[in-house]
Amino acid sequence: MTVAQRNRGITACILVFLALFSCSADTPSKERGRRYVDPEGTLSLIRDKKAVIVDTMSDLECMDHRIPGSLCLPLEEFENMARELLKDKKRPVIFYCESDECLRAGVSYDKAKAAGYGEIYILRGGLPAWKRAGYDVESVERVKREPVVSVKRGALEKMAKKKQGIFILDIRSEDDYSKGHLAGAVNIPLYKLRKRLKEIPGNRTVLVVDENGKRSFLASCYLINHGFSDVVRLYGGMEYEEPQKWKGGKG
């Protein structure tokens, strides 16, 4: 075996080792190219660079509770409203939403990048992280919380028999709805709920369906506050599956 051959062998071994190692490590591919900032960083960006903070949830949620001074720019309406709301493309923009993963903020980020905004960020951990850090939120137009019962899928049929003519209101985005929905569900995305409230019949039981059970509560409260007396929501949303087996491994 020549020295060159041996070296090649060693290099191959190292490469295989590295490849194995990189498989086991976390791959930040989803984060690649996106800049994140934590709550403290957000504050200093606002103070030092007059950054704009943008709530990417629906206006209903944004007006209900948001980081003080946020702009309400729902992800779905980015194309329509960004030009109006975010005029200065050089001013830093921080997107956030109301989940730990911040998927909506991520999509907004990509849209803003494509639209040519120079300095953009995502608030890492979203609004929950902001709250966890001990900072307050402001309510501009708070939706009064009401008791809303959630119904599991298994109990839906039973309920349908008892209550004739349930109006299934799917508040997910048009895209999600088109990918699959409950039979007979009517799609009014949450960001359009205020404007299209009249389309919901007041004399029927309304079943509010969302992605994962986190947004239907506020929507239901909003309906109840606007005179709907019989509102229930789908437990865990469309993504929920009865846990059968939890897979091994940590978290």
Partner: peptide, 16 residues
Amino acid sequence: YRNSFHYLYEDFRCYD
């Protein structure tokens, strides 16, 4: 309470 589910994800306040 500031670390509870009701506050972090549903923004419940005391009076809710």
